[in-house]
């Protein structure tokens, strides 16, 4: 198994930490992982993205131009990465704030209303965990137990009391994500 993922959105949406949690969870499950961020001052308030790779085998290139999955959380990211999904691959998008739907018909498209759901949970900070839940629903490559272990590694000790909240967010994400195109 190798899963090559791009996660992209605005700085502040938790794009980078979502990729990190996914990778740390992969480590907990005994996988090979790599995480590569976009970096630099252009990220301040602008767009951020990271490439996360999870595999049973050692990972060659940490940077890619085609992905099994693209998770896009704003319009510029959809514009940039929709075409980078491999045919038959997966595109997940947050529909809040999008001005158009994905155009590709040769890929699986799923939509998630993670922002609205986070408002319902009174905590916009769990936005990225809802999205992560949605992804794990479609691609259950990591077990929940290992995701929690990953969270414990990424979150500083003083935030560990928030782990149950994050777990709930992941579960909600799993239940609200919906399919829009199937190949």
């Amino acid at each position: 198994m190798t899963e090559e993922i791009i996660i992209a959105g605005f700085g502040g949406q938790g794009v980078l930490s979502m990729g990190q949690i996914l990778c740390y969870s992969g480590v907990m499950q005994g996988k090979e992982v790599s995480w590569m961020p976009s970096y630099g001052p252009e990220m301040r308030g602008g767009t951020a993205n990271c490439t996360a790779i999870i595999s049973d085998n050692s990972i060659s290139s940490p940077v890619l131009n085609a992905f099994d999955t693209a998770i896009v959380l704003n319009q510029p990211s959809m514009d940039k990465f929709e075409d980078s999904v491999k045919p038959g691959g997966l595109l997940i998008y947050e529909h809040n704030g999008m001005t158009r739907k994905p155009r590709r018909k040769d890929i699986n498209v799923w939509a998630i209303g993670a922002y609205d759901e986070s408002l319902k949970m009174n905590n916009v900070k769990v936005f990225n965990m809802i999205v992560l839940g949605g992804f794990l629903k479609i691609k259950p490559i990591i077990e929940m137990g290992n995701v929690i272990k990953g969270l414990e590694k990424v979150l500083p000790e003083r935030y560990h009391h928030l782990i149950p909240l994050n777990e709930e967010a992941i579960n909600r994400g799993m239940s609200i994500i919906s399919q829009e195109n199937k190949v």
Binding site: Q20, C23, V27, E32, V33, S34, W35, M36, P37, Y39, I59, P62, V63
Partner: peptide, 10 residues
């Protein structure tokens, strides 16, 4: 280089 410096791995 910037890739190896910025990327995360095991």
């Amino acid at each position: 280089d910037g890739i190896i410096g910025q990327m995360m791995e095991k």
